[in-house]
Amino acid sequence: MEPSVTQWKHLYEAAAGFKRAGCWDWMTSGHLFGVANPANGEIGYCSIMGNGGEMFGMAVYLGTEGLETFVGMLTDSLGEDPLYAQYCLMLSFDDRKELYPQELKQIKELGLSFRGAKSWPTFRFYEPGFLPMPLASGEQVDFLTLALQQALEVARSYRDDPDALLEGEGESILTRTALPSAGGLDWASEWLEPKPVEESSIPTAEPVDELRLAKIKRKLQGRAGVWEIDCFYLPMPIKEKGERPYYPMACLIVDQGTGQILSFEFIEKSEIANKTAALFLNVVEQIGVLPDEIWAVNERVFMYMSQMLHAFDLQAFMTLELPALQEAKEGMIQYFENGNG
């Protein structure tokens, strides 16, 4: 359901209070804490931005899936541009020119005014594979409002020692939880470990035809070299009628020794597991050779390829860099950024 005028007013008030408090003066983005959504129990993991003096606001990473992308960014192990991977609600204070027309209209209708650089609040929903967009539901607006209010409670409580937020036992994170009361909600702090990621959220390829596999194996002429494989988003958002703008994906296989692109294909996100496995199998079938090793920077590639790895007894390695593939990938991205395609 679309947010009401009252819900928007409460969110802008929470954003204004958050900005006045200037929590980023003593909190860094690494001082993570959680806020449990009273509506559904999902925990949003909050990161206050602005200590570095560049971007001011707060991101609320949704559930363990969102938390993992945040940790990947902190440790530089995400394997892809955060723009395409983040799963969060975000408040940021930006320049007027960065707002959508509907946001400027909304601010005017609410009787609000903002002046100066980095002074205009924007509220965005980031979802992997989609263009970040303004909040569209009352549930999102309500949760971000609560998260900002609870962020002030946490920041003020830990002002003298924000590093205490890093001292939870094991993987536990300080989390604000609420129980209904006669006066609304009673909030308290608990140290809770994130829930495990559901395995069903990681796609796997459908079983491959065993007869086809057997035929391919009989025709193999040996093994040669290292193949680098990656699946990634392309910076060319597509808007289809009635749908949110999204980033298309590509899968690329490159021979490390020669730099030759062995195969690539544009992929619908929902088909990524099947298409990645099929692309690899097609290459093997066409050239009649297996790689000595497969390299990838994203563990999910190996999940998509699990049947192929098992069927051909392939050696697979995670790495921080794919030297040959990166060059081909950069050329492809540049091609699309220049308006081709």
Rank of each mutant, 00 (worst) to 15 (best):
W295P: 01
V297Q: 04
E243A: 13
L281A: 02
A147E: 04
V284S: 01
G129H: 03
G53M: 11
E139K: 15
A250C: 12
A214F: 07
Q334S: 14
L279D: 00
P3R: 13
A85T: 02
G138V: 08
A188N: 04
M58G: 00
D142Y: 06
A277E: 09
E127S: 14
Y247W: 01
G168M: 12
W26H: 08
A273S: 07
A151F: 15
F302D: 08
W24T: 11
L32Q: 07
L78P: 09
V297W: 00
T175Q: 06
G17E: 15
A278W: 04
K19N: 14
L174S: 00
G52R: 14
V154M: 15
Q86K: 04
S200D: 12
G168F: 11
P121F: 05
I287K: 06
L234G: 11
E153S: 15
R176D: 04
G222L: 04
W8R: 07
K215H: 02
I43L: 12
G225R: 05
A311T: 04
A39L: 14
G331A: 10
S270M: 03
A14Q: 13
E167W: 00
G339F: 14
P3H: 10
Y100S: 09
E103V: 09
E268P: 00
E13P: 03
R156S: 09
V301S: 05
E127W: 12
Y304Q: 01
Y335H: 14
R300S: 10
Y158Q: 09
W26G: 10
P235K: 07
W24A: 09
E243P: 02
L11Y: 12
M236E: 13
N37R: 02
